[in-house]
Design a binder for these strands. Structure first.
Length: 382
RNA sequence: GGCCCGUUGGUGAAGCGGUUAACACAUAUGCCUUUCACGCAUACAUCCACGGGUUCGAAUCCCGUACGGGUCA
């Protein structure tokens, strides 16, 4: 019987390297592919970039690491480049969302459009049976189609980022790390003496990396300074460089020190008025100003027809937050109201709402509007 | 002009003769984290508007000067 051919996305980190080992042990015919989707120079990524002056750009370093790993494991490594596709499908949307004052999640789109679309197509054209990624997630291929499962390591579970994958994409995917925890991955890496066994995990936007975020955005979105007002009293408590540089619930970077007529305490962004360039903040101790009990979710993707029309689920509104049981009231095929008396504070427009049923990740959508007591929270925008 | 009160780190603000000059917020760094955030930890006033004096010893008491605020003809 012929072995199934898998094209594994390899990043130069530990996770995808161990994924290669696992796939090999499972009997797959593994080829690796390194993706390059961002070029700091051509994309004018200057401000806020800690690596601009490095001798070797981090992507090349990662490629070299990936190459070494592949040599160690005796697998072929390919190199693909989706820089233009990333810019057109992910980054343009990302910037436009910020310009609208929302807080997008680019990595979800990166998965939807790049890793599990352009890259998937590339693999299929090359005759591979599956693609594989080093995500902490699981997939189950059955007669009724494929299902996405949470990873064994619930602390690292990355299904939130995979919530826009459809049935076809899922059916062509493998997630070799599903059954392992992060410490186990490190252990496997060490046992196999992998070159990257001790390499630090990378964070920041996928393919772009860690940045001073406000400065990074200012490369693409010009500053539009305005006032910071306390929401209750409408008193001015500071100035900002642009409301679009901030997200709901944010405390850092506001530069609001102790205030004469207010209690001690941190100041959190609670809303913005784009037209007036006002950033609303509050320092209420309980942070109840961030409360919400209903949200409109749009662009909902369900990864298996079995989930169509579900009226209850556990929902996650931000990566690494708890799941909250919610009622789902469908508006049409891909938008719905989600509600509960107990939702997390600081639900933010532009982020994803992802649905779970037990161990299954059903899919998710984009948070479009938020409500409290049936009133939309919009800070005078409309 | 007379009288009274105040002036402490980036900000708000404790301390009122002997302190490593609280605390909170900001800021920086680290941790956490494949988004943005939240969270956690650590660092940060050679010094208390300035000059002089009293005292073994002053941010703390006294006297001037400057700058605020109040009040009375």
């Amino acid at each position: 019987m012929e072995r199934k051919k898998v094209l594994l996305g390899i990043s130069g980190g530990v996770d995808s390297a161990v994924a290669a080992i696992v796939l090999k042990e499972e009997g797959y015919d593994v080829t690796a592919a390194f993706m390059r989707n961002w070029d700091s120079t051509t994309n004018n990524d200057i401000l806020g970039n800690p690596t601009v002056e490095d001798y070797i750009c981090p992507q090349e370093q990662d490629y070299n690491d990936a190459k070494k790993v592949c040599e160690q494991l005796g697998i072929e490594i390919l190199r693909v480049d989706f820089i233009n596709e990333y810019w057109d499908n992910v980054f343009t949307y990302f910037i436009n969302e910020y310009k609208l004052g929302r807080t997008p999640n680019p990595d979800i789109l990166c998965n939807k459009f790049i890793k599990f679309d352009y890259f998937l197509d590339y693999a299929m054209e090359k005759g591979f049976d599956y693609i594989a990624m080093g995500h902490y997630a699981g997939v189950e291929h059955t007669q009724e189609g494929s299902y996405m499962l949470k990873a064994k390591d619930t602390n690292k579970d990355q299904t939130y980022f995979l919530s826009q994958l459809n049935q076809y994409q899922l059916s062509k995917s493998l997630f070799p790390l599903a059954k392992f925890t992060k410490p186990e991955i490190r252990e496997i890496a060490l046992k196999n003496d992998l070159y990257v066994a001790k390499k630090k995990d990378s964070t920041g936007i996928c393919f772009i990396g860690e940045r001073n975020f406000k400065e990074f955005l200012s490369n693409y979105i010009p500053a539009q300074p305005g006032k910071i007002l306390d929401y209750r009293t409408k008193k001015e408590v500071g100035e900002h460089a642009g409301v679009m540089y901030y997200t709901i619930g944010q405390a850092k970077g506001l530069a609001i020190g102790g205030q004469k007529d207010f209690d001690n305490g941190k100041w959190y962004v609670m809303g913005k008025n784009l037209k007036e360039k006002i950033l609303y903040v509050s320092n209420d101790h309980e942070q109840m100003f961030l409360q919400t009990d209903k949200a409109l979710i749009s662009d909902i993707n369900l990864n298996n027809d079995k989930f169509i029309g579900i009226t209850e689920a556990n929902a996650k509104f931000r990566y690494r937050q708890k799941e909250y049981p919610v009622d789902i009231e469908w508006v049409d095929n891909n938008s719905a109201y989600v509600s509960s008396d107990n939702l997390p504070l600081g639900i933010t427009i532009g982020q994803a709402c992802v649905f779970y049923l037990d161990e299954y990740c059903c899919g998710g959508g984009t948070i479009d509007k938020i409500y409290l007591n049936n009133e939309e929270i919009d800070y005078g925008e409309n």
